[in-house]
Design a protein around this nucleic acid. Structure first.
Length: 212
DNA sequence: TATGCGATATTCT
DNA sequence: GAATATCGCATAG
């Protein structure tokens, strides 16, 4: 900490966010994906709280050849088979962590990839983690948001409905209209419309034509 | 804005 | 070896 009012936020928002109960989460992967738009993802760490409003997600459903759970549970993907509301964190392309919320029931593989957030709290911390000042480069994209929130494999498998370093909160403001499209960056099941985003939100990732 | 490419680690073939 | 639920930088328009 560089000398300034301990226990207070010199600047930036400080929100009271209600933790979501597991019973509020839809069991179905697609229903959960839509439900999560507008909700809050909260990271509590020693250096402070970081949070963001979920504005873009993708569903990876049972029987989906593009899903990491498709070939059954392994050591790497087992968190996808936990009951809904747990974190599945993995490392991709040698450079990025990505985070899913597990869906479905215990033993069934399914999840929702969090693709973009609208920054709420801890923006100064996010800027430090991401080494950029541009607000739109902090949490636009699954790898970027994981970096901004310091999400890595230590958080794989944790319960997002319990007190802890990472959890899901209720909406601070309701979601606008939800758009739907094909998913980004996959090579199988490319036609399925399982990406959901808040229309008109500038923090959504991907080319503009994909998010009308 | 859009497209293209290399980097990089882990997993699977 | 190959593939990968990406990112950042370069270049062209």
């Amino acid at each position: 900490m560089k000398g300034s009012s301990p226990g207070k936020f010199a600047k930036g928002v400080h929100l009271r966010i209600r933790r979501l109960r597991r019973s509020e989460l839809p069991v179905d992967s697609v229903a959960l994906a839509r439900f999560l738009i507008g909700k809050t993802l909260v990271r509590e760490s020693a250096s402070g709280r970081i949070s963001g409003r979920i504005v873009e997600v993708e569903a990876y459903v049972p029987g989906d050849a593009a899903a990491h759970s498709f070939r059954g549970p392994t050591r790497a993907n087992r968190s996808l088979f936990l009951r809904r509301g747990h974190a599945y964190v993995y490392f991709a392309y040698g450079s990025s962590f990505m985070m899913n919320v597990s869906a479905e029931t215990d033993g069934i593989g399914g999840g929702v990839l969090i693709r973009a957030l609208e920054p709420l709290e801890g923006i100064a911390l996010m800027r430090r983690h991401r080494r950029t000042d541009n607000i739109f480069d902090l949490t636009r994209g699954p790898g970027r948001l994981a970096s901004a929130l310091k999400i890595d494999r230590r958080l794989d498998g944790i319960d997002l409905c319990a007190r802890g370093p990472l959890w899901l909160g209720a909406a601070i403001k309701p979601s606008g209209k939800i758009g739907q499209s094909a998913r980004i960056g996959i090579s199988r099941e490319v036609h399925r419309l399982l990406r959901f985003y808040e229309r008109g939100n500038p923090h959504v990732s991907g080319p503009k034509w994909l998010s009308p």
